[in-house]
Amino acid sequence: MSIFVNKDSKVIIQGFTGKEGTFHAQQCIEYGTNVVGGITPGKGGQNHLDKDVYNTVKEAVEQTGADVSLIFVPPAYGADAIMEAAAAGIKIIVCITEGIPVKDIMIAKKFVIKNGSILIGPNCPGIITPEETKIGIMPGFIFKKGSIGLISKSGTLTYEAANQIVKAGLGISTAIGIGGDPIIGTSFIDALEQFEKDDETKAVVMIGEIGGDLEIQAAKYIKEHFSKPVVAFIAGQTAPKGKRMGHAGAIIAGSKGTASEKMDALKAAGVSVADSPAVIGETIKNIMDKL
């Protein structure tokens, strides 16, 4: 088992024929992802990477039965692409695009929820269920199959954590990059709820960062509802206040959203918090050895 996506996921790519879309669609196909087509408005009827191109998501869903969409459109069209996917009945919408305005995503997220879909991202590396399907831009080979669920706000730090987990002799059930924007579709709690229900997942590693309070909310949820061990790392312990650290959402506003505040909340909830990013693998290994 896994969460959100698996080998049966039928994936379409929005922004299919663009540079990013083409490159990563190719990588996904090589990984074994079941890419059933793509969308580029105005290029419907063409063939790209041996797959059919459609003008609209609706058409693609009708023709292919796709249930997952992977979005690579430019930021100005990001929110529209998300809403188009939701309107067409796509279940899982994975948005890689970085730089979508807050106002747009605020409305798009409401639309997605109203349509009963799930949005992952934006500004995220995507989601991977190792050896089954890769729906994102992560280097697939780092992720080996196993029993650790991985949730992260960041891209390369996800790869770093996955690499450490694998080097510690463990593997990953599903790794989900939830994104570094101030408003994201899937929160830590949403992912944790899925991992709680997933029998294959025995423990979870969550990688948070400064800004917002999703990690604090997650700590509360873990304390009350989550039965599996959790290891956490929070990036930005040395970040100055009021400065945006790369991600649009990674900013300490006033005295809110600091790493120490989040680490304390997680520790209080019984989570094993790694002080250094170099010991994520070691920390989860120690816990798994005791299970």
């Binding site: 992260s152 960041s154 390369t156 730090l157 570094g180 990036a235 040395t238 650290m245 790369g246 990013p277």
Partner: peptide, 25 residues
Amino acid sequence: MVNGAGLAMSTMDIIKHEGGNPANF
């Protein structure tokens, strides 16, 4: 010098952890 925002923040953190001080993100 790091690729990716999360890893870049973590790099600053680990420098501090090892007793040093980062000059930048």
